[in-house]
Amino acid sequence: MTTALPDLILEPLVRAALMEDLGTYGDVTTRSVIPEGTTYTARLRARAEGVVSGMQIARLAFHLVDPTLEVRTLKEDGSKIAKGDTLMEIEGSAAAILSAERVALNFAGRLSAIATLTAACVAETKGTETRITCTRKTTPGLRMVEKQAVLHGGGFNHRFSLSDAILIKDNHIAAAGGIRPVLQAVKANASHMIRVEIEVDTLAQLQEVLDEGGADVVLLDNMDTPTLTQAVEMAQGRIVLEASGNMTLPRLAEVAATGVHYISMGALTHSATTLDLGLDF
């Protein structure tokens, strides 16, 4: 389980989604066919097993449309769910429930898919100290909640933005003139409060980093498993190692067995499909 984000932070995202869905004239279907004053109890149910995320956002969506709706969350974010489980009950105005339904389901289905995929990846590292972490390959505008879904699935977060930490990638190295010049520049200019990670493609580059110093983490990019094993042996625990690139579910166990500290996967957020959830009256 993870600590929920404040509603104050989430509200602008949910409000924008509701405004997009309601358009300029509101829910004309519901207004045309549902008699005013009609009340119902709706149940948000899982149509597939997985790990749930987005319940906090779904509740917020219903309450933004109608604060008088009674929303009971039966499965908290981060909970394992089975097909047929009731995740939430919403009681009150039928029109309000219907108007918020799609936004609530869009968020919950998307975020639950991320949490479910993350949990599957984390399971492959069982018995090791390797952590699964996400990247910045997120849906524009939704990074905060997608990274929260990774936490719900048992994973960890990489940096949230370009301002969180220094991550020196291949293009930075090329523009700066090489491993040593770029690390020397970091040591001369970076705040002591900012952690430094550098990406390497070869063991020779890793050795340069180890010799020069100035980095806290090395990202081992697109290395095969034997090369990752060699990298761990070279580092001898002197620096944090992160494996990235071409990380698929079937490969995770062997990569974790090499002893790398982290495996970062853009797929957690850019390739997760929607978990099938539904709302029934």
Rank of each mutant, 00 (worst) to 15 (best):
I34C: 11
F107E: 11
V65R: 08
G109M: 05
L275V: 05
L5Y: 01
G23E: 02
H63W: 09
C134M: 03
V209P: 11
I194Q: 12
D211L: 12
P12H: 09
A104S: 02
V217S: 04
E20Y: 00
T135P: 02
V51A: 06
A61C: 10
L203E: 06
Q205C: 10
M19A: 15
Q205H: 08
Q148G: 05
G245P: 07
A204T: 15
K126M: 03
E11V: 10
T116P: 00
M265T: 02
P250H: 04
G178F: 02
Q236T: 13
M223W: 10
G278K: 05
D7Q: 12
L10T: 08
I173M: 04
L277P: 02
V218E: 03
T229W: 09
L183T: 07
V200A: 04
D164G: 01
K83V: 15
V71T: 14
G214H: 07
I9S: 14
Y40D: 13
L5W: 00
T248I: 14
E199V: 12
I132C: 00
T138V: 00
T225Q: 11
L18R: 04
G177V: 06
K187H: 13
V260W: 01
M55S: 07
V186F: 00
T274N: 10
A4P: 12
R251A: 08
L279I: 12
E242I: 09
D201V: 09
T39Q: 13
L8R: 15
A42S: 15
R72F: 07
G84M: 12
Q184M: 14
T41Q: 15
S244T: 12
T41V: 14
P250F: 00
G155F: 01
V260T: 05
E208S: 14
M1P: 09
T135N: 03
A190L: 11
L220I: 10
A256M: 09
L228R: 01
L10Q: 07
S53M: 01
H261L: 10
A113N: 06
E199I: 07
M265C: 09
S53Q: 10
T269W: 01
V150E: 00
D27H: 05
H172L: 12
R31H: 13
A95G: 13
A94D: 05
C134S: 04
D216I: 09
G153Q: 02
E70M: 13
V260I: 04
G153R: 02
A231M: 07
V145C: 03
N157V: 07
I168L: 14
R102G: 06
L162T: 03
A272I: 06
V65N: 00
A235K: 11
G92S: 07
R251C: 08
N157F: 01
R15W: 08
V51G: 01
H158P: 04
F156H: 12
A58L: 06
R47A: 06
K169R: 04
V255E: 04
S271R: 10
I198Y: 01
C134N: 13
R136T: 05
I34K: 06
D221G: 04
